[in-house]
Design a protein around this nucleic acid. Structure first.
Lengths: 227, 227, 227, 227
DNA sequence: CATGAATGAGTGTTCATTCAT
DNA sequence: AATGAATGAACACTCATTCAT
C-alpha cells in the first residue's frame, strides 16, 4: 500500500541549517499525529459500524479534518481500512513466537503466546473487533491479507497440535477440524469480551487460562496429567 | 417484522362464495410461491456476496420479478434480510430441545440436539452462511434478533454445562467463557464445512461427534470415563 | 456503445392482448422522447461550453430530469458525448457518396457531396460545433471514433484529388498536404458560420460554391477551363 | 492580465544604495527565470494534454516548484494559460507586417509574412499547438483574446485579398469566406506538421510555398500568370 | 520568498425506494 | 397485482486555491 503521507522532500538539507531541520521535523511529527488521529477515528467507527456503514464523511467528521485532508493522508477509503487491518495483524505477529516442542515446557510457551495475544487484543479492542467482524469480499487486497493472516494462525495452531501429539502430550485428533474449532473458540471469546461484555475489562490471565484450559482439557470430569 | 404479504388477502372472506374462496386461495398460494422465490434468490445472493454487495437489482433479477413487485412482498431490503435470518433462527429453535439433566443419558440428549442442528445447518447451507457471516451493525432490528438468538443459544449451552457439572459429568469451568468458546468453535467448524470445504458434504454424524468430542474431552492425552 | 435505454422486455406478448401492446408502445415512444430531450440538451451545452465545462448537473437541469434518470438512459457522461459524435458522423456519412471519376461530370458530383454536407452541417449546427470544437484526449473511444471519421474524410478528399489528377482535371499536388489544407478550410468555414456569424444563416449554395471555388481555383486571376 | 510578478519589486528603488540595487536586480532575474520555467513547463503540458487534463500539480511538478510558489507567480491556472496564449499571439504579431499594395512585389511581401509566421510556428511548436488546439469556452478572457487575435488575422488576410483584387492580381472572391478558408487551411497544415508528423521537421520554405501555392492557385489544371 | 498542509465546493455515479400506469 | 421509469440523497473522490510557518 502506498502511503500518501510522508513523502518528505529530502533535498539539500545541509545548506539550510537547523531552522529548516527543526521545522521539517516538527512538520513530520504533525503529519504523524494527523495520520494517527484519522486512524484512531476510523478504527472506532469501523469497529462500531463496520466498513460499509462508515462513510468517509463519518471519518473526517470524527477526526475533525476536511475531505481534502483525508485524501492527503490516505489514497482512499479501502487503503485506510487495509492499514488498520495490517496494524492489527502486525501487532499479533510481533508477539507470537513459534513454539519448539523439543524445548522444555511447551505448554508454558503456548500459554505465554496466548497471554501475549490476549494483551494485544485487549490493548487494541477496536482494531480486534474490526478485524474479527469484517469478512471476506470487501476488497481483494484486504481479502488476501486476512487470508494470509488466518493461514498463519492456522499453521501455528496446527503446528502446536502436531507437536503436542508427537511429544505425546496431546491425543491424536482430526487436526484441521480441531484447529478450526480452536480458532473459532478464540475469536468468539474475544468478541464476547469486546462487544457483548465490552463495559467490563476481564482479568486477562483468566481469559488466557480459560481458553487454554478449554482447548486442552475439554469439559469432562477426568484426571489429567499436566507438566 | 411486518409481513406485507399475506395480511391483506385475509380480509372479509366469509361473505363471498366459493368461487372467490378458491380464487383467493389460489392467489394466496401464488403469493407464497413468489415470496419464496424472492427469499430463495436473496438467500443465495446474500450468502454468496454478503448484504452490502447484493443489490435489490440483483435480487429481482435472480427472482425474475420487477422492482415494483419486490416492494409488494417486502417492505425494504432490510426486512427481506431480517426474514431470512428469522427463518434460520426458527429452524434451529424448532429442533433444539432443553435437556433435562434429571432424565437419563443427558449426553445422549445433547448429542441428539447437536445432531439435529447439524442437519438444519447442512439442509440450509446458504441461510447458515448468511447468518454466520453477516454481523452486527446493519440494522438495529437484525442486531436485536441475533442478540436474542445468541442469548438463547448461550443459555442452552450454559444450562447444559451447569447441569453437567451438577450431575458430576462435567468438571467445574468458567461457564460463560466456556459457553462462548463452544459456540465459537461450532460456528467456525460449520463455516469451514460450508465455505472452505463447500464442495464436499461431510458425514453429518462425524461432524456432530467431533464437535462434541472436542468440546467434551479437549486435547490432552488422558483416560476419560464416558457414559 | 451499450445503450442503457430501450432494453425492452419482449417476453410473451401474445397472451396479453392489445392493451399491453399499446401501453408498451407508448412507453417506448416516451423513452425515445426522453432520450432525445437529453441528447438535445447535451448537444446545446456541449457545443456551447465544451465537454469539460458541461457537468452532468447542467445536462439534467437543461433536460428537466433528475440525476438518476440520466443514468437510466446513458451509461455515463462519456457515452452521452460519444453518442452525439456518432450521430453527427452518421449523418455526414449518410450523405457523402464516393465519386467515381469514370462517370461523367465528376466536379458536379463533388459539388453535390459538398452541398449535402453543408445541409447536414446547417441542419445540425450544435452537433457540428461540438464535433469540430472538441479535440483529442477526452476518452479513447471518442478519439478512436474521430480518428476513423477524419481518416474517412481524408480518404475521400485524397481520393478526389487523385482521381482529378488522373483524369487531368486537377494539377499534380502534394496530396496529403493539400488534403489537410482543404479539410482545415472546410472546418474553419463551417465554424465561422456556426459560431462567429451564428446569428445569420448563410445561403447554403453560396457556402458550398465558395468552398469548392476556393479549393479548386485558388485566388489568382487566371483563365480556367471548367467542364 | 495582471502580472503578479514583477510589479512589486519595482517600488522605491532610488533611496537605497547599490547593494540593494544589485540584490534586487539579481532577484528580479531570478524571478524571471522562475516564471519562465513555469511557463515552459506549462507550455509543454498544455500542448500535450490540453488545458483540462493538465493540473496545477502537473505544472509545479514539471517546473520543480511548490504549490505556493506557483501562486506567487501567477494569479491562477487560467492566467497562466492566458499568458501563454498572449505570448504566442505577440510573437506572431511581431513578425506580421501589413502589406502595402502600392509598393512593388506584393506577393513577395505576402510570402515573406507567411515565411516568418512559419518560423514562429516551428520555433514555438508547443505554443502553437496549445493555441490551435484549445478552443473557446474555458474562460471569457481567453475567449476575448483569441477572438481579437483571429479578428486581426482575418483583417490581414482580407486586406491582402482586397488589395490583391484592387491591383488585379487576384480575382474577385467572396472575401470573408475565402479568408476564413485560408486561415483554416493554414491552421490545419500547421497542426498536421506539429502533431501528426511531429517527429520530422519539414523544410520551412516548402511549407510556406505550398500554403501560398494552394491558396493562390487552387487545384485546377490551368495556366497561371505570376509576377 | 518559499513551502506544502489544509480546504471545500464540485464531480460523476449508485441504488433503495416510490408511484403512475 | 404487476410493472419499470423516475427519483434524489448519498457516496467516494479531485483539485484549484489559501495561508500559517
Amino acid at each position: 500500500m502506498k502511503r500518501t503521507g510522508p513523502a518528505r522532500a529530502q533535498v539539500a538539507k545541509e545548506e539550510l541549517g537547523d531552522s529548516f531541520d527543526r521545522r521539517s521535523a516538527r512538520a513530520e511529527i504533525q503529519r504523524g499525529r494527523r495520520r494517527d488521529a484519522i486512524l484512531r477515528a476510523a478504527s472506532t467507527l469501523f469497529s462500531r459500524q463496520g466498513y460499509h456503514s462508515t462513510s468517509v464523511a463519518d471519518v473526517i467528521a470524527a477526526a475533525g479534518i476536511s475531505r481534502g485532508t483525508f485524501y492527503l493522508y490516505f489514497d482512499n477509503k479501502d487503503s485506510l481500512f487495509l492499514e488498520l487491518i495490517e496494524q492489527f495483524i502486525q501487532r499479533i505477529m510481533d508477539v507470537v513466537e513459534v513454539v519448539d516442542p523439543s524445548l522444555p515446557n511447551p505448554t508454558g510457551r503456548i500459554y505465554d503466546n496466548v497471554r501475549r495475544v490476549v494483551d494485544v487484543v485487549f490493548d487494541n479492542r477496536e482494531l480486534t473487533v474490526l478485524v474479527l467482524r469484517e469478512d471476506v469480499g470487501l476488497n481483494p487486497e484486504v481479502d488476501e491479507k486476512l487470508k494470509r493472516f488466518y493461514g498463519f494462525v492456522r499453521a501455528m495452531v496446527e503446528g502446536a497440535l502436531e507437536n503436542g501429539a508427537r511429544v505425546g502430550l496431546i491425543r491424536e485428533v482430526n487436526e484441521p477440524i480441531v484447529a478450526t474449532a480452536l480458532i473459532g473458540a478464540i475469536k468468539e471469546v474475544f468478541m464476547h469480551h469486546l462487544v457483548v461484555a465490552a463495559d467490563t475489562e476481564p482479568a486477562r490471565e483468566s481469559v488466557a487460562e480459560s481458553l487454554l484450559d478449554f482447548g486442552l482439557r475439554g469439559l469432562l470430569r477426568v484426571t489429567t496429567r499436566e507438566e
